[in-house]
Protein backbone atom coordinates (compact mmCIF):
# COMPACT_ATOMS: atom_id res chain seq x y z
CA UNK A 1 0.00 0.00 0.00
CA UNK A 2 1.41 3.39 -1.02
CA UNK A 3 1.57 6.28 1.37
CA UNK A 4 1.63 9.65 -0.38
CA UNK A 5 1.88 13.00 1.38
CA UNK A 6 0.42 16.00 -0.42
CA UNK A 7 2.34 19.24 0.06
CA UNK A 8 -0.37 21.48 -1.43
CA UNK A 9 -3.99 21.31 -2.49
CA UNK A 10 -3.00 21.27 -6.19
CA UNK A 11 -0.66 18.40 -5.48
CA UNK A 12 -3.42 16.51 -3.64
CA UNK A 13 -6.00 17.11 -6.39
CA UNK A 14 -3.58 15.99 -9.09
CA UNK A 15 -2.92 12.76 -7.21
CA UNK A 16 -6.61 12.15 -6.63
CA UNK A 17 -7.28 12.74 -10.36
CA UNK A 18 -4.62 10.21 -11.29
CA UNK A 19 -5.56 7.67 -8.66
CA UNK A 20 -9.24 8.03 -7.81
CA UNK A 21 -9.17 4.80 -5.75
CA UNK A 22 -6.64 6.23 -3.28
CA UNK A 23 -8.02 6.89 0.20
CA UNK A 24 -7.51 10.42 1.53
CA UNK A 25 -6.49 10.42 5.17
CA UNK A 26 -6.62 13.22 7.72
CA UNK A 27 -7.15 12.08 11.35
CA UNK A 28 -7.47 8.44 10.31
CA UNK A 29 -9.71 7.74 13.29
CA UNK A 30 -12.23 5.86 11.18
CA UNK A 31 -10.20 4.87 8.10
CA UNK A 32 -7.41 3.21 10.06
CA UNK A 33 -9.89 1.15 12.09
CA UNK A 34 -11.28 -0.17 8.82
CA UNK A 35 -7.80 -0.96 7.53
CA UNK A 36 -6.68 -2.59 10.79
CA UNK A 37 -9.71 -4.87 10.76
CA UNK A 38 -9.17 -5.60 7.08
CA UNK A 39 -12.60 -4.25 6.15
CA UNK A 40 -11.08 -2.03 3.47
CA UNK A 41 -7.92 -2.36 1.43
CA UNK A 42 -7.28 0.92 -0.40
CA UNK A 43 -4.49 0.89 -2.99
CA UNK A 44 -2.87 3.75 -1.14
CA UNK A 45 -3.28 6.55 1.38
CA UNK A 46 -3.14 10.24 0.50
CA UNK A 47 -2.11 12.18 3.58
CA UNK A 48 -3.79 15.60 3.65
CA UNK A 49 -2.49 16.84 6.99
CA UNK A 50 0.05 19.21 5.39
CA UNK A 51 -2.39 20.97 3.05
CA UNK A 52 -2.94 24.46 4.48
CA UNK A 53 -6.28 25.02 2.66
CA UNK A 54 -7.71 22.08 4.59
CA UNK A 55 -6.31 22.65 8.04
CA UNK A 56 -7.52 26.18 8.78
CA UNK A 57 -10.83 27.96 9.20
CA UNK A 58 -11.68 31.46 8.03
CA UNK A 59 -14.54 33.91 8.05
CA UNK A 60 -15.91 35.90 5.17
CA UNK A 61 -18.87 38.14 5.88
CA UNK A 62 -21.48 36.02 7.67
CA UNK A 63 -20.07 32.73 6.49
CA UNK A 64 -17.48 30.57 8.22
CA UNK A 65 -15.38 28.24 6.12
CA UNK A 66 -14.08 25.28 8.11
CA UNK A 67 -11.31 23.37 6.36
CA UNK A 68 -12.09 19.69 6.07
CA UNK A 69 -9.02 18.82 8.14
CA UNK A 70 -9.70 21.03 11.17
CA UNK A 71 -9.89 18.64 14.12
CA UNK A 72 -12.88 18.55 16.46
CA UNK A 73 -10.77 19.80 19.35
CA UNK A 74 -10.15 23.09 17.49
CA UNK A 75 -13.81 23.43 16.53
CA UNK A 76 -14.67 23.16 20.22
CA UNK A 77 -12.05 25.62 21.41
CA UNK A 78 -12.14 28.15 18.53
CA UNK A 79 -15.61 28.08 16.97
CA UNK A 80 -17.96 27.65 19.93
CA UNK A 81 -19.43 31.17 19.55
CA UNK A 82 -19.66 31.27 15.79
CA UNK A 83 -20.90 27.72 15.26
CA UNK A 84 -22.38 26.58 18.58
CA UNK A 85 -24.31 23.60 17.19
CA UNK A 86 -21.30 22.13 15.42
CA UNK A 87 -19.10 22.76 18.46
CA UNK A 88 -21.60 20.97 20.73
CA UNK A 89 -21.69 18.04 18.35
CA UNK A 90 -17.90 17.99 18.31
CA UNK A 91 -17.87 17.78 22.11
CA UNK A 92 -19.77 14.46 21.95
CA UNK A 93 -17.34 12.81 19.53
CA UNK A 94 -15.50 9.86 21.08
CA UNK A 95 -12.66 10.67 23.49
CA UNK A 96 -10.23 13.62 23.83
CA UNK A 97 -7.55 11.72 21.89
CA UNK A 98 -9.92 11.10 18.98
CA UNK A 99 -11.15 14.71 19.04
CA UNK A 100 -7.55 15.82 18.64
CA UNK A 101 -7.31 13.88 15.40
CA UNK A 102 -10.79 13.42 13.93
CA UNK A 103 -12.19 15.93 11.43
CA UNK A 104 -15.52 17.01 9.97
CA UNK A 105 -14.11 16.24 6.52
CA UNK A 106 -13.57 12.64 7.56
CA UNK A 107 -17.03 12.47 9.08
CA UNK A 108 -18.50 13.64 5.74
CA UNK A 109 -16.35 11.26 3.71
CA UNK A 110 -17.56 8.29 5.74
CA UNK A 111 -21.12 9.64 5.47
CA UNK A 112 -22.35 7.30 8.16
CA UNK A 113 -25.91 7.90 9.29
CA UNK A 114 -24.45 8.11 12.81
CA UNK A 115 -21.79 10.77 12.05
CA UNK A 116 -21.94 13.24 14.94
CA UNK A 117 -21.34 16.39 12.89
CA UNK A 118 -24.08 15.75 10.36
CA UNK A 119 -27.19 16.81 12.31
CA UNK A 120 -25.53 20.10 13.24
CA UNK A 121 -24.49 20.75 9.63
CA UNK A 122 -28.03 20.03 8.43
CA UNK A 123 -29.63 22.31 11.02
CA UNK A 124 -27.42 25.19 9.86
CA UNK A 125 -27.85 24.77 6.09
CA UNK A 126 -24.17 24.01 5.66
CA UNK A 127 -22.59 23.62 2.25
CA UNK A 128 -19.91 21.08 1.43
CA UNK A 129 -16.99 22.34 -0.67
CA UNK A 130 -15.68 19.76 -3.14
CA UNK A 131 -12.59 20.24 -5.29
CA UNK A 132 -10.90 18.47 -8.16
CA UNK A 133 -8.56 19.40 -10.96
CA UNK A 134 -11.76 20.26 -12.85
CA UNK A 135 -12.62 22.99 -10.37
CA UNK A 136 -14.36 23.68 -7.07
CA UNK A 137 -18.07 23.41 -6.32
CA UNK A 138 -20.31 23.86 -3.32
CA UNK A 139 -23.25 21.64 -2.55
CA UNK A 140 -25.97 21.89 0.13
CA UNK A 141 -25.26 19.24 2.76
CA UNK A 142 -28.83 17.98 2.32
CA UNK A 143 -27.82 16.79 -1.16
CA UNK A 144 -24.48 15.38 -0.05
CA UNK A 145 -25.69 12.21 1.70
CA UNK A 146 -26.90 9.80 -0.96
CA UNK A 147 -27.24 6.55 1.00
CA UNK A 148 -25.84 4.51 3.88
CA UNK A 149 -22.16 5.48 3.94
CA UNK A 150 -22.44 6.98 0.45
CA UNK A 151 -21.94 10.59 -0.57
CA UNK A 152 -22.13 12.76 -3.65
CA UNK A 153 -18.41 13.38 -4.12
CA UNK A 154 -17.03 12.27 -7.48
CA UNK A 155 -14.13 9.79 -7.46
CA UNK A 156 -11.62 12.51 -8.38
CA UNK A 157 -12.92 15.00 -5.81
CA UNK A 158 -11.69 15.83 -2.34
CA UNK A 159 -13.87 17.26 0.40
CA UNK A 160 -12.06 20.50 1.11
CA UNK A 161 -14.32 22.41 3.52
CA UNK A 162 -17.74 23.09 4.93
CA UNK A 163 -19.32 26.52 4.83
CA UNK A 164 -21.77 27.52 7.55
CA UNK A 165 -23.49 30.81 8.27
CA UNK A 166 -22.32 32.34 11.50
CA UNK A 167 -25.01 31.61 14.13
CA UNK A 168 -27.67 34.30 14.50
CA UNK A 169 -29.55 32.46 17.24
CA UNK A 170 -29.21 29.63 19.72
CA UNK A 171 -28.34 26.14 18.54
CA UNK A 172 -28.39 22.79 20.32
CA UNK A 173 -27.15 19.28 19.74
CA UNK A 174 -28.00 16.19 21.81
CA UNK A 175 -27.05 12.58 21.29
CA UNK A 176 -28.34 9.40 22.88
CA UNK A 177 -25.81 6.66 23.49
CA UNK A 178 -25.91 3.68 25.80
CA UNK A 179 -23.05 4.90 27.91
CA UNK A 180 -22.22 8.32 29.24
CA UNK A 181 -19.18 9.07 27.08
CA UNK A 182 -17.27 7.75 24.08
CA UNK A 183 -20.21 6.18 22.35
CA UNK A 184 -21.66 6.02 18.86
CA UNK A 185 -25.07 7.62 18.65
CA UNK A 186 -28.21 5.56 18.97
CA UNK A 187 -29.86 8.70 17.68
CA UNK A 188 -28.93 12.38 17.64
CA UNK A 189 -30.76 15.63 17.05
CA UNK A 190 -29.74 19.22 16.37
CA UNK A 191 -31.89 22.32 16.23
CA UNK A 192 -30.92 25.85 15.25
CA UNK A 193 -32.95 29.05 15.44
CA UNK A 194 -32.26 31.46 12.59
CA UNK A 195 -34.03 34.66 13.74
CA UNK A 196 -32.41 36.67 10.92
CA UNK A 197 -34.70 34.90 8.50
CA UNK A 198 -37.38 33.74 10.92
CA UNK A 199 -36.46 30.14 10.24
CA UNK A 200 -35.80 26.94 12.19
CA UNK A 201 -33.25 24.31 11.17
CA UNK A 202 -33.10 20.69 12.26
CA UNK A 203 -31.04 17.60 11.62
CA UNK A 204 -31.10 14.10 12.99
CA UNK A 205 -28.77 11.14 12.78
CA UNK A 206 -28.89 7.33 13.19
CA UNK A 207 -32.60 7.22 12.51
CA UNK A 208 -32.75 6.89 8.72
CA UNK A 209 -30.43 5.58 5.99
CA UNK A 210 -28.85 9.03 5.84
CA UNK A 211 -28.71 12.01 8.19
CA UNK A 212 -31.83 14.08 7.48
CA UNK A 213 -33.70 17.26 8.28
CA UNK A 214 -37.16 17.12 9.80
CA UNK A 215 -38.56 19.62 7.32
CA UNK A 216 -42.20 19.51 8.43
CA UNK A 217 -41.17 20.11 12.01
CA UNK A 218 -39.03 23.08 10.95
CA UNK A 219 -41.88 24.61 8.94
CA UNK A 220 -44.40 23.97 11.68
CA UNK A 221 -42.30 25.68 14.34
CA UNK A 222 -41.20 28.64 12.25
CA UNK A 223 -44.81 29.06 11.17
CA UNK A 224 -46.03 29.06 14.76
CA UNK A 225 -43.32 31.47 15.90
CA UNK A 226 -44.04 33.84 13.03
CA UNK A 227 -47.83 33.73 13.25
CA UNK A 228 -47.71 34.28 17.02
CA UNK A 229 -45.27 37.15 16.61
CA UNK A 230 -42.88 35.41 18.93
CA UNK A 231 -39.62 36.13 17.07
CA UNK A 232 -39.93 39.80 18.03
CA UNK A 233 -41.78 39.22 21.28
CA UNK A 234 -40.64 35.95 22.73
CA UNK A 235 -42.93 34.28 25.24
CA UNK A 236 -42.73 30.74 26.61
CA UNK A 237 -43.36 28.13 23.95
CA UNK A 238 -46.82 26.60 24.45
CA UNK A 239 -46.65 22.92 25.46
CA UNK A 240 -48.83 22.01 22.49
CA UNK A 241 -46.29 23.52 20.11
CA UNK A 242 -43.41 21.67 21.77
CA UNK A 243 -45.37 18.43 21.70
CA UNK A 244 -46.27 18.82 18.05
CA UNK A 245 -42.70 19.67 17.14
CA UNK A 246 -41.52 16.47 18.85
CA UNK A 247 -44.17 14.41 17.06
CA UNK A 248 -43.18 15.81 13.68
CA UNK A 249 -39.49 15.09 14.29
CA UNK A 250 -40.33 11.52 15.33
CA UNK A 251 -42.53 11.18 12.26
CA UNK A 252 -39.69 12.30 9.99
CA UNK A 253 -37.38 9.45 10.94
CA UNK A 254 -37.20 6.00 9.35
CA UNK A 255 -35.15 4.01 11.85
CA UNK A 256 -34.23 0.35 11.93
CA UNK A 257 -33.57 -2.20 14.69
CA UNK A 258 -29.85 -2.84 15.06
CA UNK A 259 -27.27 -3.71 17.72
CA UNK A 260 -27.34 -0.18 19.09
CA UNK A 261 -31.08 0.16 19.59
CA UNK A 262 -34.57 -0.60 18.40
CA UNK A 263 -36.44 1.43 15.80
CA UNK A 264 -39.16 1.98 18.34
CA UNK A 265 -36.72 3.41 20.89
CA UNK A 266 -35.04 5.66 18.33
CA UNK A 267 -38.36 7.16 17.25
CA UNK A 268 -39.37 7.70 20.86
CA UNK A 269 -36.00 9.15 21.90
CA UNK A 270 -35.81 11.54 18.93
CA UNK A 271 -39.14 13.00 20.00
CA UNK A 272 -37.81 13.50 23.54
CA UNK A 273 -34.59 15.11 22.28
CA UNK A 274 -36.55 17.38 19.93
CA UNK A 275 -38.82 18.61 22.72
CA UNK A 276 -35.97 19.21 25.15
CA UNK A 277 -33.57 20.90 22.73
CA UNK A 278 -36.23 23.17 21.28
CA UNK A 279 -37.08 24.37 24.79
CA UNK A 280 -33.40 24.98 25.54
CA UNK A 281 -32.89 27.00 22.36
CA UNK A 282 -36.11 28.96 22.82
CA UNK A 283 -35.37 29.73 26.48
CA UNK A 284 -31.92 30.95 25.49
CA UNK A 285 -33.39 33.05 22.68
CA UNK A 286 -36.00 34.54 25.00
CA UNK A 287 -33.43 35.47 27.65
CA UNK A 288 -31.15 36.89 24.97
CA UNK A 289 -33.94 39.08 23.60
CA UNK A 290 -34.86 40.27 27.09
CA UNK A 291 -31.26 41.17 27.80
CA UNK A 292 -31.06 43.09 24.51
CA UNK A 293 -34.32 44.92 25.19
Amino acid sequence: MDFLRAASLDDALATKAQRPDIAPIAGGTDLMVGINFDHIRPSGLLDLTSVPELTEWSESGDVVRVGAGVPYARIISELGERLPGLAMAARTVASPQIRNRGTVGGNLATASPSGDAHPALLACDAEVELASTRGTRRMPVTEFFTGVKRNAAEPDELITAVHLPRATGPQQFAKVGTRNAMVISVCAFSVALHPDRAAVGTGFGSAAPTPRRAVEAEQFLSGELTSRGMWADPRPLPDTVVERFGELVAAACAPIDDVRGTASYRRHALGVLARRTVRWTWDEYSIGRQTCA
Binding site: T92, A174, R276
Partner: peptide, 15 residues
Protein backbone atom coordinates in the same frame (compact mmCIF):
# COMPACT_ATOMS: atom_id res chain seq x y z
CA UNK B 1 -24.15 17.63 32.37
CA UNK B 2 -21.40 15.09 32.93
CA UNK B 3 -23.01 14.33 36.31
CA UNK B 4 -26.38 13.56 34.69
CA UNK B 5 -27.64 10.51 32.78
CA UNK B 6 -26.42 10.80 29.20
CA UNK B 7 -23.33 12.62 30.38
CA UNK B 8 -21.36 14.59 27.84
CA UNK B 9 -23.90 13.86 25.10
CA UNK B 10 -26.14 16.65 26.40
CA UNK B 11 -29.43 14.77 26.57
CA UNK B 12 -30.84 16.36 29.71
CA UNK B 13 -30.29 19.55 31.67
CA UNK B 14 -32.15 18.05 34.63
CA UNK B 15 -35.49 17.12 33.05
Amino acid sequence: IRDLPGGAANTTHGE
